[in-house]
Simulated assay, not measured.
Amino acid sequence: MSAVVLRRIDPDRNMARFYRLDVQPDLFGGWSFIREWGRIGRPGQVRSTPYPSPAEAMVALQRQRQAKEQRGYLEQQSGEKI
């Protein structure tokens, strides 16, 4: 699966943030919804939440994506660097 990378940049507020969302299999047969966020150009914080199926993890990803897009985050275009 491909990660979703969202960015929010507002030079007037000195804001340059990223939010990366991904679903990956774990070592125990389950699935993990992985979120990483922080300031662009710096290492971010990472949180992983386990789910029993990829469908449930994708629902969580879509829910989080929608919440971030409502706050002004936009999807990063392919080829752009964080």
Score class of each variant (00 low, 15 high):
75 E>A: 05
54 P>Y: 01
50 P>N: 01
49 T>Q: 04
61 L>V: 08
46 V>I: 11
55 A>N: 03
61 L>E: 04
47 R>M: 09
66 Q>K: 13
59 V>L: 12
73 Y>H: 06
57 A>S: 03
80 E>F: 15
71 R>M: 12
77 Q>L: 11
62 Q>K: 13
68 K>N: 03
48 S>W: 02
55 A>H: 15
71 R>K: 15
49 T>F: 12
46 V>G: 02
60 A>L: 00
68 K>V: 06
66 Q>T: 06
75 E>P: 05
55 A>T: 15
51 Y>T: 07
44 G>W: 06
53 S>G: 12
50 P>Q: 01
76 Q>Y: 06
73 Y>I: 04
55 A>F: 13
59 V>M: 10
75 E>H: 10
59 V>P: 04
56 E>F: 11
46 V>L: 04
67 A>N: 13
66 Q>R: 14
65 R>L: 08
78 S>R: 14
45 Q>L: 01
73 Y>S: 04
54 P>D: 13
68 K>R: 09
59 V>Q: 14
70 Q>Y: 06
68 K>M: 04
64 Q>F: 12
62 Q>H: 14
46 V>E: 09
48 S>P: 05
77 Q>D: 05
78 S>P: 00
44 G>A: 00
51 Y>K: 03
57 A>G: 04
56 E>A: 11
75 E>G: 00
48 S>N: 09
68 K>W: 14
62 Q>F: 08
66 Q>N: 07
67 A>E: 15
58 M>C: 07
62 Q>G: 11
58 M>R: 10
52 P>T: 06
51 Y>C: 02
53 S>W: 07
70 Q>D: 09
57 A>M: 03
48 S>Q: 09
46 V>Q: 03
58 M>T: 10
59 V>G: 10
73 Y>K: 10
65 R>G: 06
53 S>E: 07
59 V>K: 15
65 R>F: 11
55 A>K: 13
58 M>A: 01
56 E>G: 12
74 L>N: 11
56 E>D: 15
76 Q>E: 08
62 Q>T: 07
67 A>V: 01
60 A>F: 02
66 Q>E: 12
58 M>V: 13
46 V>F: 09
45 Q>I: 00
63 R>C: 06
71 R>P: 00
55 A>I: 09
60 A>S: 02
51 Y>M: 06
69 E>C: 09
68 K>S: 02
63 R>F: 13
69 E>S: 07
53 S>L: 04
65 R>M: 08
52 P>H: 03
67 A>P: 13
47 R>K: 13
44 G>C: 02
63 R>D: 14
76 Q>H: 06
72 G>T: 06
70 Q>S: 13
64 Q>T: 10
65 R>K: 10
64 Q>P: 15
79 G>D: 05
79 G>I: 05
63 R>G: 12
57 A>C: 03
48 S>T: 15
